[in-house]
Write a protein that binds this DNA or RNA. Sequence first.
DNA 1: GCGACAG
DNA 2: ATCTTGTCGC
Length: 230
Amino acid sequence: MAFLKRFELPKDIQSAELIQYRLAQQLILEDKFKDEDEIRLVAGGDVAYEKDGQRLVAAVVVFDLKSFTVVEQVVCAGRVKFPYVPGFLSFREGPVLLAAIRKLKTEPDVFLFDGQGIAHPRRLGIASHLGVLLDRPAIGCAKSHLFGSYEEPGKEKGAFSFIRDRFGDAVGLVLRTKANTRPVFVSPGHRVSVAMAGRIVLRCVSRYRLSEPLRQAHIIARRAVMEPAD
DNA sequence: GCGACAG
DNA sequence: ATCTTGTCGC
């Protein structure tokens, strides 16, 4: 998979912030698909870190919703080049994820990333950042909250509530993907609406809290980070 | 000043 | 994210 824009790695938080404001202007929050049934291949990308070292590994899987199985998987190792600072996760994990995506032979319909989309202080969580660089549909699916206000959704699977910014605009969903379990935080990354992002994520879930694409990517990434090579 | 703070 | 054992519940 080839892409046009390159990943800029800033030297400090100040310049990173400028990059976020600039890329956020390129966000498109309209659905590329009218119906979720047009979506069949969903990619999931996640990163695992070596217990203490500076090495990290990104895994990206392409999940086929029709067979509900992984049809392609790639991994890519790299070195940490940016610290973890809340609100700037993409500068830490973005480079390796992009390098892994570059290895894909299959062109997925949409990408799922472990983190926020536009439910972010500057509307550029990792899913939006990578979505814009790839100019492909992307969705942020985080395991915890970062930005915006929300009410606790119902306890049953499928229950949800909106994540709103300070103006009251919906920027994402708090979605219960499994009964009586902590919800996940879903927000559009790029080229998808809030509603469509929620529908897609739900379609990727079965018996676990995490969507299958991200759950599989997580397993593969940490399995790879344990091994010596790559 | 105080609390919050993706992975 | 990662370090860590057992344990309660569907």
